[in-house]
Simulated scan of single mutants.
Amino acid sequence: MKKLNELLARIPEMQARAKQRAEREPLPGKPLPKNVVQLPLWPEPVRAVPNGFLRSALFGAIAKGKRRYIDGEQLAALDGVEIRYTGQRLDQGDLDVWESVLHAVRLQELGSQCRVTSYALLKLMGKTDTGKNRVTLNKRITRLVASALTVKQGRYSYIGSLIAGAAKDEETQEWVIELDAKLRPLYAADQFTQIEWAVRQELDGQQLAQWLHGFYATHAKPFPMKVETLLNLSGGENADPYSGKQKLRKALDAVVEASAAHGEGFSYDIRGDLVHVEKRASGPQRRHLAKKATKPRKPRA
Rank of each mutant, 00 (worst) to 15 (best):
E174P: 09
K34D: 15
A77I: 14
K34H: 14
Q191C: 10
L248A: 03
Q201R: 06
G263N: 03
A167E: 09
T136W: 10
P284Y: 14
A293H: 13
A57F: 14
E264S: 03
I11Y: 13
A18M: 02
A77N: 14
F59A: 12
Y119N: 06
E13D: 12
R287T: 07
T150W: 08
G265R: 04
R249E: 08
A209M: 01
F215R: 02
K2R: 15
T193G: 15
E13H: 15
Q74D: 14
T130I: 00
G235P: 14
E109W: 03
P45W: 01
E196S: 01
N133H: 12
G236P: 06
M14I: 08
F59M: 12
Y216Q: 02
G80M: 08
S243V: 03
Q246N: 12
I163K: 05
Q113L: 04
V116K: 02
G263S: 00
L274Q: 15
N238Y: 08
K295N: 11
R280C: 02
Q285V: 01
S267Q: 10
I195F: 07
S56K: 09
A16T: 00
R184H: 10
N35P: 05
R84S: 09
L248E: 05
S282Y: 10
L75W: 15
Q210T: 03
P185F: 07
Q173D: 14
A290N: 12
K247C: 11
T229C: 10
R47S: 03
V151Y: 09
R17K: 01
R140C: 07
G65I: 05
L252M: 07
G93Y: 09
G263M: 00
K64V: 08
P299V: 04
P222Q: 12
N232Q: 15
Q88K: 07
Q88P: 06
Y242P: 02
N238W: 08
Q108F: 02
A293Q: 10
D71E: 07
S259W: 01
I159L: 12
G29Q: 02
M225H: 09
L102C: 05
L208E: 12
D71S: 07
Y69T: 09
E109Q: 11
Y85A: 11
A239T: 04
L252V: 02
L149M: 12
P43K: 00
Q20D: 03
K64L: 09
K250Q: 03
T130W: 14
G236A: 13
I177G: 10
G244P: 15
H262D: 02
S56P: 15
L102H: 05
A209G: 05
A254C: 03
V36R: 04
P33M: 08
S161T: 11
Q74L: 10
A146P: 03
Q191G: 06
K30L: 04
E109C: 01
R140W: 10
T136V: 05
R184P: 04
I141L: 08
A22P: 08
D79N: 11
G29D: 01
Q201T: 02
Y216D: 00
I163A: 06
Y119E: 09
Q38M: 00
L78I: 13
A261V: 01
Q201C: 04
G29H: 01
H276K: 12
S243T: 12
K245N: 12
